[in-house]
Amino acid sequence: MRAAVEVQAVEPVAPGRDWSLWMRQIRVILRIEVKKNFWGRRAILIYLLAAIPVFLTFLLTFVHPQGAADIRKNWTSAQTAFAMVIYRGLILQTIVYFGCAWIFMNLFRGEVVDKSLHYYFLCALRREVLVAGKYISGLVVSVVLFTMTTATSLFFLYYARGYPANVDYLFDGPGLKQCLTYIGITVLACVGYGAVFMVIGLFFRNPIIPALLAYGWEWVNFLLPPLLKKISIIHYLHSLSPIPVSEGPLATVVDPTPAWISVPSMIVFTSVVLILASIRIRRMEIRYGNE
């Protein structure tokens, strides 16, 4: 019964690194992931979450009878209130935080729960490339979504002020720089939180608990002593705020970290976390039965 067979010898493995192949693979993963995770019904919740600040600023400026008038009258206070309550409290520390948690933790954990991660593991694909592809897909979605949230919320804030005043403020004043800084901070938040949540999703079967613990740490950051304060993402994001905001009477006062340190620090931190994710995924085994 044995067939007379001859197997072709294995082609020699090309030494070195095949960057063009990896880039191609990352693009394919990006396409698959965005389609799979962000075009379906499951994505509705994340869109609703991202819409909350937009809806609130819309209500404040269009529906609340005094809202727009107050903004016009007290522009400086309105800006401070926006920076403290809407941007920092709501957008950065709640919407971006939980949005990134949902998006990035699901990149791997969601596939383990769906029992479909092995399909990637059965491709001629370096697992590090998979980490990069998945991270970039999460980053693209979170950055698009949350920078739109930030920009639209700012739009409503500025809209209340009226056209001529805005043109002056944006193009002859500090307005444009402030807007771009807010958007930059949002991008940086997605970069940092994204990496952290992806690693949490890789290491923990129930990532909600570590995510909530990290959330608590970020929230009590203003109370922490100076050294511990710096062991957080939110400290570096706050340091970049275009409008200085008080952290309250109980806060430990620490000088903001300059941008030339904050931004590279976040990038280095993210790189370290992604290397950790790559090490983890190289050792990862498919054992859905244990999940």
């Binding site: 389609k35 799979k36 379906g40 596939e111 769906d114 029992k115 479909s116 092995h118 399909y119 859905y288």
Partner: peptide
């Protein structure tokens, strides 16, 4: 494994 990526 009788599971597939969603929606394909």
């Amino acid at each position: 494994f009788d599971s597939f990526p969603r929606g394909m």
